[in-house]
Amino acid sequence: MAFLQGTTKSQSGAKGDSLKKRSLTPYLLIAPGLIWLITFFVIPIFSLGSTSTMVRPQGAQIGTYVQELRFANYVDAFLANQEQYVRSFLYAGIATILALAISYPLAYMIAFRAGKYRNILLVLVVAPFFTSFLLRTVAWSQILGDEGPVLSTLRFLPFIDESLRLTATPFAVVSGLTYNFLPFMTLPLYASLERIDPRTLEASGDLYANGFITFRKVTVPLSMPGVVAGTLLTFIPAAGDYVNAALLGNPSTKMIGNVIESRFFAVVDYPTAAALSFTLMATILILVTLYIRKSGTDELV
C-alpha cells in the first residue's frame, strides 16, 4: 500500500519519524471518511441551523416551512421549555456525580487489587452492555415498577407508605441515567489508574503520607485525565438522553431530549425542535470547552 512510500526520503524529524512524510497519500486516505462526516454530520448541523429559523407560512400545510431567518424562534423555544432544559442538565449532572462515586472505587479495585482477575473484571464491567440498552432500561422499569419485586418487598415494611412509587419519579430517571452510562465512566477511570506506577504510591508512603493523603495527593491527581474523560463521556449522552425519562419517568420529569423528539414527531414543529437541538449542542460544547480548559487536560482529542 502506498502510505509507506518515500520512507527514506524523509528530511525532517528524529529517529522514529522517518515514516512521516508530506505527500498526497494522507489526503487520499482521509478523503472518503471525511467526505462522509462532512456530508452526514457537518452539513446536517448547518441544515439544522437553517431549519431553526424557519417559519410556517399562514395557512400552509403541516410540516411546510419557509426560511425567514426568525432568530426569535430560539427565544420562544427556550422560554417555552426552560424547565426541561434546566432539568436535563441537572439530572445529567447528578447522574455524572453518582456514576463517578460508584465507578472510582470500582476502577481503583480493578486497577490495584484485582491481581490476575483484572481482565475478567474488565470484561464484566462491559458485559451488561451487550444486552440491549433498551432492554436493560425496561428491566429497571419493571424491577422498580408498582408490581415489581422491589416495591412488593418494601410494602411489607411497617413504615412504608402504601402509595410509594419508584418509577415515574425523578429518582428513577436519575438512577436509569446513572446505570446506563456507568461503563463510560469506569473504563476511562480504569485506563488512567492502571497507568499509575504503583511505586509512586509506595514512594508517597515512604515520604510520610498515610493512605488517605497518598490517595488525595498522588492517586487522584494522576487519575485526573480519566476523571475528565469519564465525566464527559457520561454527561454528554446523559444530557441529551430521552429514553430513560420516557421509560422511567412521568410528564413532570421530561428532559430536553423528550421535547425535541415530540416536537419532531408528535407536533411536527421542526423549527422549534431544531432551535432546541442547536441550543443543547452549543451549551454542551461551551461547558465541555470550559471544563477541559479548567482541568488542564488537552490530550483528550
Binding site: 527514506t8 526520503k9 524523509s10 528530511q11 529517529k15 522517518s18
Partner: peptide, 15 residues
C-alpha cells in the same frame, strides 16, 4: 554513531 549506522542501512538519507 547511530545516525551514521542508519545512513549505511538506508533508514536515513545523508544531507
Amino acid at each position: 554513531k547511530t545516525t551514521t549506522l542508519r545512513m549505511i542501512a538506508g533508514l536515513e538519507e545523508p544531507s
